[in-house]
Simulated assay, not measured.
Amino acid sequence: MLKIENLTKAFGAVNAVDNVTIEVDRPMMIGVIGASGAGKSTLLRMLNRLETATSGTITVEGQEITGLKSADKRRWQRDCAMIFQQFNLVPRMDVVSNVLHGTLNQRSTLATMFNLYPTADIHRAIDILDRLGIAAHAAKRAEALSGGQQQRVAIARAVMQDPKIVLADEPIASLDPMNAQIVMDDLRRIHDEDGRMVIANLHTLDTARRYCDRVIGMRQGRVVFDGSPEQLTTGVARDIYGADASFSEAATSTSIDALEQKIPQRA
């Protein structure tokens, strides 16, 4: 379904992504982990064509997408939805209109200018919000919602595109543990119920193990681990992050149980 071959992205003399090869034969939920600067975000941005590869190829269902231009590139970006850490919503616009922005690549310039949407699309947007448990906020401005709610609106916008692949670039990095769990639950449901491939950049090992079918570890632009969650041992994690024996998973945990264990209980 997805084949990445010898993919490289150079910024000057530095290879942010360095000769990466990955093959995925079916829709899966994949976590990409690694330290900041490992190349995770650049990899996702090349998949979505927000960045252009320096060399190598990306092929999806037989279509080579690294060379797409103009209308073909926009069609691919409709099929490959992107969810960002900072949500990328229009703050003063209502929630349902933000979700409807997922159809922009399918609409005429005139309809976009006058904010005109078919009734069927409006109903579908509200149905998606309802599925994510936030339909009650449809008429509110996006800026009035909490961070977790805004990220779920961003997920709804991605689903509105009806994509083949959903990319999530550190979707829970700015969220508290409770909202992080809700957002990851939603991403997993999108995979399980819709059969979509989901690729998420993640910072925490417990999240990758709990939600992902496959985990890819990156270090200095290269893939240094590609395996199942069960194979992601603490020793492997040390290698991925370039850490010594003092490395502690608990320090980066997003689980509510782990958080409670780190907070001293009052008598």
Results as ranks from 00 to 15, higher is better:
H123Y: 12
D169F: 08
R238C: 11
D176T: 10
N105C: 02
D72I: 00
P91K: 08
D25N: 14
A81D: 06
F247H: 13
A200C: 13
D213I: 09
L167W: 12
T8A: 04
V224L: 11
D18K: 02
V183C: 12
L205D: 08
F114Q: 02
P27S: 10
G56D: 06
R219L: 05
D176K: 05
I83A: 07
L7V: 10
H101A: 09
L132N: 00
I22N: 04
A71K: 05
A142L: 13
I126D: 12
I190N: 01
T21V: 09
E260R: 07
T42A: 05
S248I: 09
D25R: 11
V198R: 05
E64M: 02
V223E: 08
I216G: 00
L116A: 14
L2H: 02
I65V: 14
H191A: 06
M113F: 13
I155E: 02
L50P: 00
F225G: 00
G39T: 05
S55T: 14
P177I: 12
N88D: 10
H101L: 14
R78V: 06
L187D: 02
M93L: 14
T254L: 15
V198H: 10
D213G: 10
N6D: 15
V99M: 05
I240N: 03
E143C: 12
A267W: 11
L110F: 14
G221P: 01
D257E: 15
A251C: 04
R222G: 10
L205A: 15
S70P: 00
R45H: 08
A251I: 10
A154G: 03
A144G: 01
I30S: 06
T66S: 03
H101E: 12
W76Y: 04
I216K: 01
T204A: 15
D206I: 07
R45W: 06
A16Y: 10
P171A: 14
H137W: 15
D176R: 03
I240R: 02
R210W: 07
I58L: 01
F114P: 02
K69G: 01
S36V: 13
A138V: 04
